[in-house]
Design a protein around this nucleic acid. Sequence first.
DNA 1: GGGTATATAGTAATTATTACCATATAATAT
DNA 2: ATATTATATGGTAATAATTACTATATACCC
Lengths: 150, 150
Amino acid sequence: MKPENTMVENRISSFISQCKDLGIKVTPQRVAIYRELANTDQHPSAESIYQKIRNYYPNISLTTIYRTLETFEKLGLVSVVNILYNAARYDANLEPHHHLVCVACKKVEDYYDNSLMNLDISKSNLANYKVLGYTIQLNGICRDCRKKKS
Amino acid sequence: MKPENTMVENRISSFISQCKDLGIKVTPQRVAIYRELANTDQHPSAESIYQKIRNYYPNISLTTIYRTLETFEKLGLVSVVNILYNAARYDANLEPHHHLVCVACKKVEDYYDNSLMNLDISKSNLANYKVLGYTIQLNGICRDCRKKKS
DNA sequence: GGGTATATAGTAATTATTACCATATAATAT
DNA sequence: ATATTATATGGTAATAATTACTATATACCC
């Protein structure tokens, strides 16, 4: 369900003070982009945010959308739903299994845990979906990337 | 861990008979691509499969890799690890939550289930990873897409 | 209001993917 | 084994998503 207006405005106020704390400038573009995100539960792409904002801010640049989203993400103001968006990744292993993903280098490893294979997912709001299955993505940092940092 | 050789060869034999059952041709390119996938647990992209195969099959075409992977995926011979690979998707909602993904239209909805927020993921082979968190992706078909089919 | 570091717009470049088409080849029947 | 044919491949061009670059603009501190 779409967030309520008052909640959205609260999140925007909070966003603005966070920007100040973080020492980045509060520009109308940044507020517009954040508002579009706070205002929807549709998990939009850069392009679809661009199309929305263009309706009332016709000369905003697509580049700004990309750059701003990257900035927000690095500062932890928003998150990327699909960190493996960069390229399609394939697997010949059709056995049900989960994945360990290194958030730094995007490496993916298989993860097997029997206790996670038969979770009860029928509890909540699945009214609209016919659920076919699920996968768990464990996000972490692999040893190689930890070494690099230290 | 990388699959053993005998296991890989078994999977390739099985792959070949599946191709015949499915009525698609068993070409050296297809076998090579399938072998590369069966031979690794690295979840490679089209490009990295291409680079591997080029070492011993120098004039294979990148287009063939893409087309073949698509064919395999449609027939259920391989799977795509990250079905949302098409474009980065953003979220201003930083509360921990999970996602419902429509495999047909790639729509993403939030999914809340308290019983899935504190799973014990420390059981197995996490030696190399510092795990930061996890998300569950429920794959399904949304109502709109079910309507379209019927 | 003026100065300055940061942000934006616009365009070009890069990367991943798909479309198209002429040629080649696996599979089937002979 | 060979000819036939539908399907697959290779090569190139087109498209889509993202990033790089640079001159101009503007938020913020004084």
